[in-house]
């Protein structure tokens, strides 16, 4: 599963990426890539730059220097239609970010209609299919405020999937959830992975990384410290910083 099936172009190809917020250098030359169909998990202490790296992939953060190629397209090239590229990259946030003024179904159809230009019936049909996939068909008329955190996050995943993305970015998708709700969200993500979805997952869930991930990246201080197969990085970490981090979280 870790080898690209047909295409040789990486889904995500990040080269020498640097990002500073004022004087604070958050990313210090990161090389990173995800092949089509691959599930890459990124772990590391808070402030290590892992979320910033993920947010640079669809340019929610503006890279200071370096390159980000998505399916071979340079997202910082002024010629690139950024909205078009973004519409093919699903993103799931730590805080869900569902649209509170819209019903669940409208959350799922809004971008389909405005960005993809789909008709109402088609958008609704696709939305319902994806709601079924995350197990929330009965909630299509509910408003986000009436859903639990776990349900909101599953709706957020269904919203991203409704755009038929080529890949999914997960930014600590379970960190804001009560412990008993984490399992449902991880199950949905696991199912997605089993269908061959390309995924970049910033997470603290080591179990998920070990079980579902094809590749694991450990970041600290704005650089990739160590990467490899999840079992080996988690089981036999080579670097002191990796060992120190894992000894605290495992």
């Amino acid at each position: 599963m870790s080898t690209p099936p047909s295409s040789t172009v990486p889904a995500i190809d990040v080269r020498k990426l640097c990002k500073s917020f004022g004087d604070n250098e958050v990313l210090k030359g990161v090389d990173f890539h995800v092949d089509p169909g691959q599930v890459v998990c990124v772990i590391g202490p808070s402030g290590s730059g892992k979320s910033t790296l993920l947010r640079c992939v669809n340019r929610l953060e503006e890279p200071t220097s370096g390159q980000v190629l998505v399916e071979g397209i340079d997202i910082c090239d002024p010629e690139t239609d950024l909205d078009q590229v973004r519409s093919r990259i699903g993103m799931v946030f730590q805080q869900f970010n569902l649209f509170p003024h819209l019903s669940v179904l409208k959350n799922l159809t809004l971008a389909q209609r405005t960005v993809r230009g789909r008709g109402k019936d088609e958008a609704v049909e696709i939305a319902r299919r994806n709601l079924a996939k995350v197990g929330l068909s009965e909630k299509e008329d509910a408003y986000p405020a009436h859903l639990s955190g776990g349900q909101q996050q599953r709706v957020a995943i269904a919203r991203a999937l409704s755009m038929d993305p080529d890949m999914m970015l997960f930014d600590e998708p379970t960190s804001a959830l009560d412990p008993e709700l984490v399992g449902d969200v991880l199950a949905v993500m696991k199912h997605l992975a089993s269908e061959g979805m390309t995924m970049m997952v910033v997470t603290h869930e080591m179990g998920f990384a070990r079980e579902v991930g094809d590749h694991l990246v450990f970041m600290d201080g704005g650089v990739v410290v160590e990467e490899g197969r999840p079992a080996s990085v988690l089981g036999e970490p080579q670097h002191e910083r990796t060992k120190a981090f894992l000894s605290k979280v495992l």
Binding site: L60, D83, S87, Q95, F99, L110, A111, V115
Partner: peptide
């Protein structure tokens, strides 16, 4: 309106204008 709302809309590929009109202004 929380920044995450516009980010969610933009990450779905919505333009700045559509994000303002459909997501930010109603809230």
């Amino acid at each position: 309106v929380p920044k995450g709302q516009a980010e969610a809309a933009r990450s779905l590929g919505m333009s700045g204008g559509a994000t303002m009109v459909r997501v930010v202004l109603p809230q």
